[in-house]
């Protein structure tokens, strides 16, 4: 598969035996997986399981201690920045900004930012350009961050805890937006510990526990195999802690 004139590789993301140590703390231990295009993947784990570290390493914001990460065959680095849109769990916007400023800020930073799509999404999210970022509720702020991240034309979207601290109504709106605005040739990796609300939009799930990958599979196959929901499997995996 040809993408943006680079290597012809079928997998969007390849992670090979990646480990990460912060001083003496082993955050991630020997993780390997690949992700294909056109998928929504859940990265599931409890707090401190290594989800954010994995996301940051894919985004190029943290260096693996060992192992390799490649996006369309390119090692993570300057070249892969334009292929990846990362939504961190801490907002990138400043408190003095309006929503309109935030959009301009993003479009200045990212050549692939699609202003028209961003405005359509804002409308869907019931946000307006004049809203002050400072006065947004937690749920509205998450909706803005998601709008900014998904309005870039990327191959891989990394959404770190997009549902954290968001009330059920806002959560539904975020899920609807994901289904509505997701581009089918890209993939979305979503980290979360809230599984039951979101499991219906996943193609695959990856479960990480204490920095190690304990499960990776197609959601429908896992349901067929275990006769259980992802939420139940998740609880089983983490009950052993």
């Amino acid at each position: 598969m040809q993408k943006k004139g680079m290597y012809s590789v079928e997998d969007i993301l390849q992670i090979q035996q990646v480990s990460k140590k912060y001083w003496s703390k082993q955050a991630v231990r020997d993780i390997s997986f690949t992700l294909g295009p056109g998928k929504i993947i859940g990265l599931l784990g409890s707090n401190g399981s290594g989800k954010t570290t994995i996301m940051k390493m894919i985004a190029g914001l943290a260096q693996p201690t060992s192992g390799k990460i490649a996006v369309y065959g390119n090692p993570v680095g300057v070249e892969t920045k334009s292929l990846i849109s990362f939504m961190p769990d801490q907002p990138l916007t400043e408190s003095w900004m309006t929503v309109g400023d935030a959009l301009r800020f993003y479009s200045d930073f990212f050549a692939d930012f699609d202003q028209a799509k961003a405005e359509r999404m804002l409308d869907f999210m019931k946000l307006s350009l004049a809203d002050k970022v400072r006065s947004l509720s937690k749920g509205m702020s998450e909706r803005l961050q998601l709008t900014l991240a998904l309005s870039r034309k990327a191959s891989l979207y990394l959404l770190d805890e997009p549902l954290g601290g968001v009330d059920p109504v806002a959560r539904t709106r975020i899920l609807n937006a994901l289904v509505e605005f997701y581009e089918e040739d890209s993939s979305i990796l979503i980290s979360t510990h809230l599984v039951s609300d979101i499991e219906r939009i996943f193609d695959e799930v990856i479960m990480v526990k204490n920095g190690e990958m304990v499960m990776h599979g197609n959601v429908e196959e896992l349901r067929l195999q275990h006769g259980k929901s992802m939420d139940e499997l998740f609880r089983e995996v983490f009950a052993e802690c």
């Binding site: 899920l175 609807n176 289904v179 509505e180 997701y182 089918e184 219906r200 939009i201 996943f202 193609d203």
Partner: peptide, 14 residues
């Protein structure tokens, strides 16, 4: 159908 049912388009495809 995917946005109606709020599920993954690949699931509907299948």
């Amino acid at each position: 159908l995917a946005s109606d049912l709020q599920i993954n388009p690949n699931t509907v495809q299948r």
